[in-house]
Structure formats: structure tokens, C-alpha cells
Design a protein around this nucleic acid. Structure first.
Lengths: 255, 255
DNA sequence: CTCAGATTGATACAAACGGTTACAATTTCC
DNA sequence: GGAAATTGTAACCGTTTGTATCAATCTGAG
């Protein structure tokens, strides 16, 4: 069932970004890059990233800071690139939660091996190990989506059955309201796939979802089409983080 | 009756992990690995591990700490790998509850022998000697499962008979609510088996369990299907240990 | 304003996937 | 030892979802 993994390379040097992108693409991965924290966060929001390759030495927010950020806000494995071969860096990196690290200069083949190894590991785990701090209930217009229960309740209080694809698409939209998402982005975010030429599956999926949640699917009010751009979810979305059930107690603070 | 045992190798050095994994696989075991405590805990949560091979010297949480954790929270035999040939380590290790230990460098064949010996020993004991600190009563929706008694009571107060497979599957779900579990994972967690191609036994088991606990088995509310992914248990689960409320297994602070 | 090309929506269809039933093999329990 | 229950396998069928196709709509050039 596996699609090629989507890797995000974060480094402030363009030459390194391009080198790595080229090399990894050639080896069958889908690759995006970012020149710093801002771009990285943006990418995380608009693409389904499977693994991040992150340079430690960067102006502005450094790699360790970003690594910690990823650890706290996403559930994506990180491989750190460090210029110093120092043990301290390694230890800090692993403590902060990097999944592996590599000291520069390194052989691209080595990086490739590490990436494959980390992916193998992370895929043997439940892919949806829940991002930390995710809301469990999302409301929009007068609709309510119970995220964990995968249950959508209409303004009338009726539960509307959602297929797996409906659900994924809806969640994708709800997490990014007012953001115009291209078909490519939507495909990546919902299924982790890359669009074929003439790929219309997203159009179709949108059409199906509209039939379920739009009052008048011919004149959609929530999922608007942006001609030449993609789709936007325009309704106001509010999220609630409910009481934690025992499964997400990652706390070790006293209560 | 035995399926091959599932062994978890915990070591911070990749080369050692890979070496051991390869060697043990070649000798008929199913093997997973972890590079530290975090990954180890994740693996314990998502796979049915029969034995842990644990390196003592590791950055972050060291092997002895992890060994104690396993002893307190799981019922899985541990073999410690120690770099020092010191008597103290051995004593500490055995005091902490390791089932055996090996000093590095060691011959893989030696490890193999110890593993087989420990497994033989642990299997001659009651296999399900219950994890320490496990809740005895689990409630979900308005259902109650008395874990030790293997008794499930419906919202109406009626006791619903569960077969062994029903029980194992239900407990598997109750311990991992909101977590999407693949058929492979479910098969491993419930029966310790590896899926054959076209293995539909889990589908069937889920279907049978749904008939017993879902109000409308055709529109399941608790055990949801994730197309292409597996199944999720979506109801909120609370657990009780005797009379204290149940905190999940992530704690390592004294209470 | 009109028309051609491009873009999007809707429908039809096929392949893949999952639910269910029946049945056989196995175990459990009198 | 035999009946009943359990559990894996196979088969059938409904649903889901991607692709193809055609109609509707939009855009911009003339």
C-alpha cells in the first residue's frame, strides 16, 4: 500500500538544500525544502511530511529549537545534521527527541540509510499516534465533528455517516480554514499521494463531501472553489480540547 | 502451539541493533528494535513483545531505569547487556529484576541460548500473570469490563459472555482507545501471530465483537473501521486500579 | 458581445476493500 | 467419547473510491 515518503529538508544553505533534494528525489522520495523555521512551519501546515532532515546550525531559530518545536507540536521523526562531531550535540539531540543524527560532512548514502531506517521504525508504529495538543471537537457553522469518534453531527443533531475519505478531507479543511489549498496539497494531506496528470480524485471527493454537508451543494457556502487555485474552507471553525482520557496522559507533572 | 516469539532489542547504537536484529531474525524470531526509552515504550504499547534485550549503557534513561520500568509495568522478561564485567552490575541487574544478563563483548550464539532459556522458563509460568499496576475494571460508554474476572457487563447490567478471542480483542482496544490499529498489529496483539496474505480473521473477530457490544452492529459507534488502515476504538475509556483512578503507564515518579 | 479553450461539477463505472454468512477444523466441556 | 462452542477460511455481496467522460461554467481575446 505504500506511497513514497515525503521528506522535508530544512537548511539555510541553498546549495545543500538543492543537493539533498536532488539526491533524495532520485532515490524515490518526494522532497520539499525550507530555508528556516518560518518556511518549515508553513510546510508542516500545508503538506503531509513523513520525516524532517534538519540542520542544527542555522541563523535565527537554530535546529535544536526547531527540533523541540516539532517534537512538541507534531508527530514526525527528525534527523539532525550537525557540523560538530561532538558528543554533547548528539546527546542533546537525542534528548530533545531527534530520531537520529548525522555529522557533517557526511556521505549522502549514509543519510539515505538513516532515513530508511527511521521510516521503517516509525511506520511500524501506529501512524496516527495523535499530535500533541489536538482539539477533539471541532465546530463549524452549526455542525460538530467529534474527531476521535469520527462522528459528524448536523445542525439538526443528526449524525451524518462519513466515509474514511470524507473524514480525512473534512479534517484537513477544518484544520486550515480560510486557507486556499491546491489539489496537490489536498491530495498529499488526505492520502499522502502525489497527483497524477489529470488527477481529478480530489474534485470528486470534494463533490461527495459537499453533498453531505452543504445545504445546497450547487451553491456551496463552506467549501468554496478557487478557480485555478484549489479549494477553501470558509466557515468559522472553533476547536475544543476536551478532558484527556487516560490514553493521552503524557504528563509527568503532579496534578 | 507456539508462534515464534517477538523480541525487542533496545540499544542506542544502530550497528548493534541491526546486528542483533539480523541475527535473531535469521534464527527464527520476530524482532523489533528501539533506540531508547521513548521508542521502547511505544513499541510495548503497539506490539506483543515476548522478551526484551536491553543495553545498560545508554544516554538519557539508562538500561537499569528502563529495566525497572518494565518490571513495574509489564510482565515481560528482560535480558540485560552490560559493557562492564562487574559483579556490581550483575547484582544490581538481578535485583532490579532482569531475568538474565550478558557482558559485552559477547557471542551472538550465547545470547541466543540465553533468550531460549529465558523464554522456556517464562513460558512454563502462567503466561498472562497480569501486568503489575493494571486496572482491574475498565469502563467505556456505559459498559464495564472486570478484567480479572473476564466479565463484561452491559449498560443494562446484563453480563455478556465473551469468548477468549472476544476478550483479548476487546482488551486490546480498551488499552488503546483512539489509536488506529492495523490488522497486522491487532493480530500480533491478540494472538501473537503474523498475518498471512488474505488473512481476514481479524475482520471476522471484529464483526463478532461488534455484534456483542454495538447497539447497531451495522453502524458501529465504538469500533470504527478505517478503510485502508485498520480499526479504531473511539469510545472514552476510564480505568480503575482497585479504588485509585487509573493513570497510564507513562509515569515513573514515585507516588 | 461572442466564441474558444480551460477549468470545474456531475455521473457512470470498475476495481479494491470490508462485512457477513456458512462451514470446517479445533477445542472445550460434560 | 460426543455435543457444543469457538475460531480460522472461503465465498458472496454491498460500499467506497479512483478514473473516464461529458456537460456546465468561467475567462479572456478579438
Amino acid at each position: 500500500m505504500e506511497q513514497s515518503a515525503h521528506i522535508l529538508v530544512v537548511d539555510d544553505h541553498r546549495d545543500i538544500r538543492e543537493l539533498l533534494s536532488k539526491y533524495l528525489s532520485k532515490n524515490g522520495f518526494r522532497v520539499s525544502d525550507a530555508d528556516g523555521g518560518v518556511k518549515m512551519r508553513q510546510m508542516l501546515k500545508t503538506a503531509a511530511i513523513d520525516l524532517i532532515v534538519l540542520d542544527v546550525m542555522m541563523p535565527g531559530e537554530d535546529g535544536l529549537t526547531l527540533c523541540r518545536y516539532v517534537r512538541e507540536n507534531e508527530n514526525i521523526p527528525v534527523i539532525l545534521l550537525t557540523a560538530l562531531g561532538e558528543e554533547t550535540d548528539r546527546i542533546i539531540g537525542l534528548e530533545i527527541g531527534a530520531d537520529d543524527y548525522l555529522t557533517k560532512p557526511f556521505n549522502p548514502r549514509e543519510l539515505l540509510a538513516r532515513i530508511k531506517s527511521v521510516l521503517r521504525r516509525s511506520q511500524s508504529m501506529p501512524r496516527e499516534a495523535e499530535k500533541p495538543n489536538e482539539p477533539e471537537v471541532l465546530t463549524f457553522d452549526d455542525w460538530t465533528l467529534y474527531v476521535h469518534q469520527r462522528e459528524l453531527v448536523s445542525p439538526d443533531g443528526v449524525t451524518v455517516p462519513l466515509s474514511a475519505a470524507d473524514y480525512r478531507l473534512l479534517v484537513t479543511f477544518l484544520k486550515r480554514p480560510t486557507m486556499v489549498l491546491s489539489r496537490d496539497q489536498l491530495l498529499d494531506l488526505t492520502s499522502g499521494r502525489t497527483a497524477q496528470i489529470f488527477d481529478r480524485s480530489i474534485d470528486n471527493q470534494v463533490s461527495r463531501l459537499r453533498k453531505k454537508i452543504e445545504e445546497d451543494p450547487k451553491n456551496p457556502r463552506m467549501i468554496k472553489t478557487v478557480r485555478g487555485g484549489g479549494y477553501v474552507f470558509t466557515a468559522k471553525v472553533t476547536g475544543k480540547v476536551e478532558d484527556a482520557t487516560f490514553d493521552d496522559v503524557d504528563e509527568e507533572n503532579d496534578i
